[in-house]
């Protein structure tokens, strides 16, 4: 949400973390992507006002920043749920039935892939290979990898993360 009070202090406070990130990369070429990564870590997503602020600070156009944000799958312009459920649809997982695991999550959470539950707890995503093919089918919840999944694990995983 943009600050509507027109005082400069609120804006400064809101964007202070961005200033700190940009400062780290002062004078470095090609820093836009690392900056976006770190800013997204702070705010959870990259809405237009934040992209505009980064563009202004770096002295590049908003279209350049937006072009990068929209190109890479890991950047998002909409807020995500508290936990990101990312089901691997790489080849090894696919031949071992990860499509069915994904369908089970869709059923249990009552959302489609790419959507967030109304309570803001879970975002369901599909990803391309987590590099843990030996444990296929696998998924990532936030930064934890879960392997050798079967459909019965789905409610267990949902319950585990619901509590915290």
């Amino acid at each position: 949400m943009n600050c509507q009070c027109k005082c400069s202090s609120g804006k400064e406070e809101k964007y202070a973390p961005i200033d700190r990130v940009i400062e780290k990369y002062q004078g470095q070429e090609g820093a836009l992507i690392p900056i976006l990564h770190q800013v997204q870590q702070v705010y959870g997503y990259l809405p237009e006002d934040i992209q505009a602020y980064i563009a202004e600070k770096l002295g590049v156009s908003l279209s350049e920043v937006y072009g990068v944000v929209s190109f890479y799958a890991l950047f998002t312009t909409v807020p995500k749920g508290k936990h990101r459920l990312s089901i691997c649809l790489g080849t090894a997982c696919y031949v071992k039935g990860s499509g069915e695991i994904l369908a089970e999550f869709e059923k249990k959470l009552n959302i489609k892939v790419g959507e967030t539950t109304p309570d803001g707890l879970f975002t369901l995503e599909a990803c391309r290979c987590l590099g843990a093919c030996g444990l296929a089918p696998v998924m990532m919840v936030d930064e934890d990898v879960h392997g050798r999944l079967v459909a019965d694990d789905v409610p267990k995983i949902i319950n585990k993360y619901k509590g915290n």
Partner: peptide, 20 residues
């Protein structure tokens, strides 16, 4: 940042430069 094409050498370099 999650783009398969960046495994291609020239695309990787463009990405290191901070672009699409």
């Amino acid at each position: 940042a999650g783009a398969f094409v960046c495994g291609e050498e020239t695309a990787l370099m463009t990405s290191v430069e901070g672009k699409r």
